[in-house]
C-alpha cells in the first residue's frame, strides 16, 4: 500500500532534524478603524478562498490520485518497530527446539504489576521444569522488566498488540506465548529491552576455561 510506504518514508524523515518556520503574523490591531481595515483586507485578499482551494485540492487528490493517509486498520496493519513492547513471546532454543525458560523466577520477582506466576518442579531428568506459566495481561503494564531481567533471553516482547478482551483478566499460558515448534525457523531475536547489546563481546571479561 502506498500509504504504508509513505509511513516508512515519514519515519525516515522524522529521523532528520526538523526545520521549523515561524510565520510573520504582524501586529494584531485591538480596536476601531485598524481592526476594521484588517478584516476588510483579509476578507478581500482571498485568504478565505485560499483555504477553500487547499481543501478542495486535497479532496481531488484524495479522490482521484489516491493520496490517502488512512490505514484501514484491522485489514491493513502498519509495520511496528522491532523494539516494540507488546504481548510477550517465549522463545525456544534454535538448536534443540527446547524452550529457553529455565524457571528461575526472576521475571515473577521483578514484575511490578505482579502479573507473572509460575510453577516449577523437579522433573525426571533432574532438571528444573516449568510446569505452569501465566501472565495476566489484564494487569501487565508492558514495562519490559521481565524481558530485561531474563538471563536466558527466553521471555521477550513481541508485536502482538491486539489484546482487547471481554474480561478484565486475560491470562496467557506458556503454550500461547511459546514459539510454535514448526515456526522455529521464523523465530527472531528481540532487539529491544533486555537484549544483548551490539558490543556485548567487548564487555565480557574472559575467564580461563581452556583446559
Amino acid at each position: 500500500m502506498a500509504h504504508i510506504e509513505e509511513h516508512k518514508d515519514t519515519q525516515a524523515i522524522q529521523r532528520e532534524k526538523q526545520n521549523y518556520i515561524m510565520l510573520d503574523l504582524g501586529k494584531t490591531p485591538q480596536f476601531g478603524i485598524p481592526a476594521f481595515i484588517q478584516v476588510v483586507k483579509r476578507s478581500l485578499s482571498r485568504e478565505l478562498l485560499k483555504g477553500l482551494g487547499v481543501t478542495f485540492r486535497e479532496m481531488i487528490n484524495a479522490l482521484f490520485k489516491g493520496k490517502l493517509h488512512t490505514t484501514q486498520y484491522p485489514f491493513e496493519k502498519l509495520p511496528i518497530a522491532p523494539r516494540y513492547r507488546a504481548i510477550h513471546e517465549m522463545l525456544r532454543l534454535l538448536e534443540s527446539g527446547h524452550y529457553r525458560c529455565i524457571g528461575c523466577g526472576l521475571c515473577e520477582k521483578i514484575c511490578i504489576s505482579n502479573c507473572i506466576a509460575m510453577e516449577t518442579r523437579y522433573d525426571e531428568n533432574q532438571r528444573k521444569e516449568v510446569s505452569e506459566y501465566t501472565i495476566n495481561f489484564g494487569r501487565c503494564i508492558f514495562c519490559g522488566y521481565c524481558a530485561e531481567v531474563c538471563p536466558e533471553l527466553a521471555i521477550v516482547h513481541g508485536g502482538r498488540y491486539e489484546n482487547a478482551s471481554e474480561q478484565r483478566a486475560g491470562f496467557s499460558l506458556f503454550e500461547d506465548m511459546l514459539t510454535p515448534i514448526d515456526k522455529l525457523k521464523e523465530q527472531n531475536e528481540f532487539a529491544g529491552f533486555g537484549s544483548i547489546s551490539p558490543n556485548a563481546d567487548e564487555n565480557i571479561k574472559k575467564t580461563p576455561l581452556a583446559y
Binding site: 478542495f56 486535497e58 479532496m59 484524495a62 479522490l63 493520496k67 490517502l68 493517509h69 488512512t70 484501514q72
Partner: peptide
Amino acid sequence: KVLAFMQRRLGPMH
C-alpha cells in the same frame, strides 16, 4: 465523507 476526503482520509468505509 467530504470532510474525510478533504483531510486525505477515507471516512466511513466498512
